[in-house]
Structure formats: C-alpha cells, structure tokens
Deep mutational scan, measured.
Amino acid sequence: MSGNGNAAATAEENSPKMRVIRVGTRKSQLARIQTDSVVATLKASYPGLQFEIIAMSTTGDKILDTALSKIGEKSLFTKELEHALEKNEVDLVVHSLKDLPTVLPPGFTIGAICKRENPHDAVVFHPKFVGKTLETLPEKSVVGTSSLRRAAQLQRKFPHLEFRSIRGNLNTRLRKLDEQQEFSAIILATAGLQRMGWHNRVGQILHPEECMYAVGQGALGVEVRAKDQDILDLVGVLHDPETLLRCIAERAFLRHLEGGCSVPVAVHTAMKDGQLYLTGGVWSLDGSDSIQETMQATIHVPAQHEDGPEDDPQLVGITARNIPRGPQLAAQNLGISLANLLLSKGAKNILDVARQLNDAH
C-alpha cells in the first residue's frame, strides 16, 4: 500500500501541473516587456503551470559599433537563445518575429505568432524639431536608422535628408537623439515604442507609400524545439490566425527572394473581405531603383483552434497545428507568387547589386 502511495506522490510531482516552463529572452527592456506579455497570456491559459524567465545577451546586443547589415552573420539576435533551447536550458524563446530568419536551424520551429501590433515605422524627432515631419525637416538634416530597408525607401522619398546608421537598443538610440546634436530624427518601429509606453515620442507614423515595413514587423514569434510536442501544444494558444497568415505570406515572399538583413526588402499586408493583399518591394541601397507589386488571394481566416493538420510540417519556419492547413498554404503560395513576379521584373539584379555594395563598404 505504502509503495503505491509513493508512486502516486511521484506521479503528482512529475505531472504537468508541477512543471516549471523556462522562457528565454534577450536582456533589453523591450525584450523583457514583450516576454512578460507572452508569459502573462500563458499564465492565464495555464494557471497550474509556473513560468521562469531567463534573460541573456546576444551577438546583436554586444556589437554596437557596426551596422547590422555589415556584421555579416545571420541570427544576430537569436543564436545564443537557440543555443540555450538546444541544450534544454529553456523550453521556449520569445523573439520579435522580424529577427527570426525565414529558414531556422534544424530542430527549431516557430510554435506561435502572437497578435500583431502596429507594424509601421515611426519617426521620433529631436526636441528642437518636435512638430515637424520628415518632409518639413531642414535641408541636409541627419536621420538615424539601423535599417537598409528604411534608408533606401526614405532616401527616395525625401532626397533633402541624409540617413546615417544608429545602433543600440531603444533606450540607447533615444538617448543619442536627445543628448547629442548629430541626429534631427530617428526611425523606429511603432510597436516597440508603444510597448515601452513611449507613445508621446511618436512624431509621425510612416504610411506604406512612404515606407513599407519589415517582414514580420510588429509581431512576436515564440520559438521552440520542433519535436517538443508538449510545448508546441502549450504555445499553440498564442497563435493569432490573421497575423499568422499575413506573416506566412510575408516570410514566403522574403524567403523566395532570398532577402535578408543586408538587402532592402519591404512588405505591406492587409486582410479585407476574405482577401489577403500582399505588397512587396525591393530597392537599391540608395533607393534610386525599385520594383513594387501587389497581389491578392482569397483566404478564409479560420477561428482559433479549428482542428489543424496533425502532421505539422513547417511552413517558412512556422508550425501551427491548430490552424487549418489550406489557408496557410494559400498564404505561402501568395508570397511565392509575388516573389516570382518581382524576380521576373529584375528584382534579383537589384538585390545582387545591393548585396555587393553593402559587402564592399
């Protein structure tokens, strides 16, 4: 009898209710805020589980004197976190989706994509230029951005401005803007500013005609071990179906173009009346040469937790077992079709030249 009692006690200790789920994140304040929001949602869904947040620095956090596009290494903000995932030191990792490459290392998958916040870019102005827009900034004003995508589009749109690289986390960039006289304004992701509670610093939100956004911008991705079915089931509740389908289309477009950090590629997606609209573009580094096109596809946005595919093969690095396969494939095909259209119009040449120029500098 006593033996059975011990077995029952052991089973209770090993039951999922007692389990601590370890969540990996970057150390920056924004990353911690984003991770806290994901953990809060998981806690609400699984009140019996405990969650421990483990923060670590990544290569991208450490190399702050070089433009991201020049470092010449993929997975700048993800490699150390993936290493911890691989060694079973954490069970899942919360990322900004735009930091996750469209091809993940073997053994990993994006197990959830959370509801997207505003994906557009924002302009934050130096205190002396508050009330201005990019259009009304004085001639030769210097605007800071760490992104080739932003610089290429904005140089084309605002030729009277000069664009220079600015690195560091959000706090560091804002301090550089406010305390030094080098920059009249800087460009940042609206979602990051909003998550930090800095709505009052948003001086201008850039519309798609001015600057399309990065693939996955404004959404959070939760990376897990691809074979860890328990954790895949656990994080599945975080999937937002519309965000998922938009981001599958965007990531398929980028992957098929073979774009990345070192080339200016941008997108804009919208879901309306059962249609998914995808606009994508590529630019030369100075913005003088560009190709942009829009395509659409009829896609039914499923309700969360309709029964999805059981075999769960990944699409552009994403596993969404609780979302039907048909809409996911339709979104992926839309991204591939748009990429093929741009490639047929000469996108590869623009991107190759951009890559060579970026590598040469």
Score class of each variant (00 low, 15 high):
20 V>E: 06
22 R>K: 13
23 V>D: 01
26 R>S: 01
26 R>L: 01
28 S>F: 01
28 S>M: 01
28 S>P: 01
28 S>N: 01
29 Q>R: 13
30 L>D: 01
30 L>Q: 01
31 A>S: 11
32 R>G: 11
33 I>D: 11
34 Q>G: 07
39 V>Q: 08
40 A>N: 07
40 A>P: 03
40 A>L: 09
43 K>A: 09
44 A>H: 09
44 A>T: 12
44 A>C: 05
45 S>L: 08
46 Y>G: 06
48 G>H: 04
50 Q>E: 15
50 Q>D: 03
51 F>M: 09
51 F>R: 01
53 I>Q: 08
55 A>M: 07
57 S>N: 05
59 T>L: 06
61 D>E: 14
61 D>P: 03
62 K>Q: 15
64 L>T: 12
67 A>P: 04
67 A>I: 15
68 L>N: 06
69 S>K: 14
69 S>L: 09
70 K>R: 08
72 G>Y: 10
79 K>D: 10
81 L>A: 04
81 L>D: 04
84 A>R: 06
85 L>D: 01
86 E>S: 11
89 E>G: 08
90 V>S: 07
90 V>L: 12
92 L>R: 01
92 L>Q: 04
93 V>F: 06
94 V>L: 08
97 L>E: 04
97 L>G: 01
100 L>V: 08
100 L>P: 05
102 T>W: 01
105 P>D: 05
107 G>Y: 01
108 F>V: 08
110 I>L: 09
111 G>Y: 01
113 I>K: 01
115 K>R: 11
115 K>C: 08
116 R>Q: 05
121 D>C: 10
123 V>Y: 01
125 F>V: 09
125 F>R: 03
126 H>F: 08
126 H>M: 08
127 P>S: 11
127 P>W: 14
128 K>N: 14
130 V>G: 07
131 G>C: 07
131 G>E: 09
133 T>H: 07
135 E>C: 09
135 E>T: 11
136 T>F: 08
137 L>Q: 05
138 P>D: 10
138 P>V: 09
139 E>I: 14
141 S>Q: 11
142 V>W: 09
144 G>V: 05
146 S>W: 10
148 L>G: 14
148 L>R: 09
149 R>A: 01
150 R>P: 03
153 Q>V: 06
153 Q>Y: 12
154 L>R: 04
154 L>E: 01
154 L>D: 05
156 R>E: 11
156 R>A: 14
157 K>M: 12
167 R>E: 01
167 R>N: 08
169 N>W: 05
172 T>Q: 01
172 T>W: 04
174 L>N: 04
174 L>P: 01
174 L>R: 08
174 L>W: 06
175 R>T: 08
175 R>C: 11
178 D>Y: 13
178 D>P: 01
179 E>V: 13
179 E>L: 09
181 Q>E: 14
181 Q>T: 13
184 S>N: 13
185 A>S: 06
186 I>F: 07
187 I>Q: 04
187 I>T: 05
189 A>W: 01
191 A>T: 09
195 R>F: 04
196 M>R: 06
198 W>V: 10
201 R>T: 06
201 R>A: 01
201 R>M: 01
202 V>W: 05
203 G>S: 15
205 I>K: 14
209 E>S: 05
210 E>H: 01
214 A>F: 05
214 A>C: 10
216 G>C: 14
219 A>C: 01
220 L>N: 03
220 L>F: 06
221 G>A: 07
223 E>C: 15
226 A>R: 07
228 D>R: 13
233 D>W: 03
234 L>K: 12
236 G>A: 14
237 V>D: 01
242 E>F: 15
244 L>F: 01
245 L>F: 06
245 L>Y: 14
246 R>Q: 14
247 C>W: 04
247 C>L: 05
248 I>G: 01
250 E>F: 01
251 R>M: 10
252 A>C: 01
252 A>W: 01
254 L>P: 06
257 L>R: 15
259 G>S: 11
259 G>R: 06
259 G>P: 01
260 G>D: 15
261 C>R: 03
261 C>E: 01
264 P>T: 15
266 A>V: 15
267 V>R: 01
268 H>G: 01
270 A>Q: 13
271 M>N: 08
272 K>Q: 09
274 G>K: 08
274 G>T: 01
275 Q>N: 03
278 L>W: 04
280 G>S: 04
282 V>G: 07
283 W>V: 01
283 W>M: 01
283 W>N: 12
285 L>F: 14
286 D>K: 05
286 D>Q: 11
286 D>S: 08
287 G>F: 04
287 G>E: 01
288 S>H: 01
289 D>T: 15
290 S>M: 15
292 Q>A: 08
293 E>H: 13
295 M>T: 06
295 M>A: 12
296 Q>K: 12
297 A>I: 01
298 T>I: 04
305 H>V: 10
307 D>F: 15
310 E>N: 01
316 V>N: 01
316 V>P: 06
316 V>H: 04
317 G>P: 11
317 G>V: 06
319 T>H: 15
320 A>L: 08
321 R>T: 09
327 P>R: 01
329 L>C: 01
330 A>D: 12
330 A>Y: 01
331 A>C: 13
335 G>C: 07
340 N>E: 01
340 N>M: 15
341 L>S: 05
341 L>M: 11
345 K>F: 15
348 K>I: 15
353 V>R: 06
355 R>K: 05
356 Q>E: 13
359 D>S: 03
359 D>C: 14
359 D>Q: 05
